[in-house]
Design a protein around this nucleic acid. Structure first.
Length: 299
DNA sequence: TCGCAGGTGGTCG
DNA sequence: CGACCACCTGCG
């Protein structure tokens, strides 16, 4: 079953390759297929968008769902109802330098992902690289996740449940290639499983500072991973995850010392405020996507 | 070959 | 409390 939705500020490549998610893959036709929330769907744009069509209205084709499911799950997951034009205008007014980053990733949207999957995925992401992170998460799902209906000729697997991972030994996880993160995952899974995930799934209702303090108390979760979880699954949009790419781009655009994370954090709070997380996504994508020589000089 | 890749925990001073 | 540093593993 296919749905068609009018969208604006919505670009598949920008959304799925700005570093927030790991289970969406580009198909040969430029569409993206992914498994999230226990379902597999495919997204495609009705007409191929040219480079800066992100701000124009366009038609999105969603395959593998229906209206009810769209309302229940995907409307929120893809952040359909937020006005990204307003966000981009506000950020551009607050800062004169971010404009080129916004132009580069004009169709980015912040997905509302599952708390548990986001927690474990970003523990896995630490000190690793995107291809390896994706492989690890797929193997984890194939081995310990529920089997889902075949889609486009491929078996699909849900992300493993809290219970499933909490019962595993670190050795079982090491075999997947998680390395030293295996222990972090089993430890954290046990902690989260103690109340069946109630605490984790109610964190979003707490003030961001309290949710943050809880997250960094988990094994394998530090400031960067905690901010990713808050931003990508708990709608705490003031969160500003600082990773190596953000350090590079902040150094390049704002001339802040690359190892002065504290200064980057305060700069983000003062400059981007409640939209810090959106700014982070535009900046991250800009730095990732464009080789140095193609990037506009900003001095 | 060896350093690096979307950091964190542990250990010093 | 801030500055190191080891750490699994795959890849160029």
């Amino acid at each position: 079953m296919k749905l068609i939705k009018e969208v604006r500020d919505f670009n598949l490549k920008h959304i799925f390759e700005c570093g927030q998610c790991f289970r969406w893959e580009e198909e040969p036709d430029g569409s993206y297929t992914g498994t999230a929330l226990g379902r597999t769907i495919n997204l495609n744009m009705e007409k191929r968008q040219d480079a800066d069509a992100g701000t124009e209205n366009a038609r999105l084709i969603i395959d593998g769902t229906d209206e009810n499911e769209f309302e229940d799950l995907w409307r929120s997951y893809f952040d359909f109802d937020r006005d990204y034009g307003e966000i981009k205008r506000t950020l551009s007014m607050r800062d004169s330098v971010i404009g080129s980053a916004i132009a580069a990733g004009s169709g980015i949207r912040l997905l509302n992902q599952d708390n548990w999957e986001t927690l474990i995925s970003f523990i896995i992401s630490q000190n690793s690289n995107i291809p390896r992170i994706k492989k690890c998460i797929e193997k984890l799902s194939e081995n310990f996740g529920e089997e889902l209906p075949t889609y486009r000729g491929k078996k699909r697997y849900a992300f493993p449940s809290i219970e499933a991972l909490s019962e595993l030994s670190p050795q079982a996880l090491s075999e997947i290639g998680l390395g030293y993160r295996a222990r972090y995952i089993t430890e954290t899974a046990k902690t989260i499983a103690r109340d069946g995930g109630k605490m984790l799934y109610s964190l979003g209702e707490l003030p961001v500072r309290e949710a943050y303090e809880y997250l960094v108390s988990l094994c394998g979760v530090g400031p960067k991973v905690a901010n990713c979880i808050l931003l990508f699954s708990m709608q705490k949009y003031e969160s500003f995850p600082i990773d190596v790419w953000v350090k590079r781009v902040m150094n390049r655009l704002y001339h802040i010392d690359e190892n002065d994370s504290a200064k980057m954090e305060s700069f983000a709070v003062e400059t981007f405020g409640e939209y810090g997380g959106f700014a982070q996504q535009y900046l991250f994508y800009y730095m990732r996507e464009f080789p140095k020589e193609q990037r506009k000089q900003e001095d």
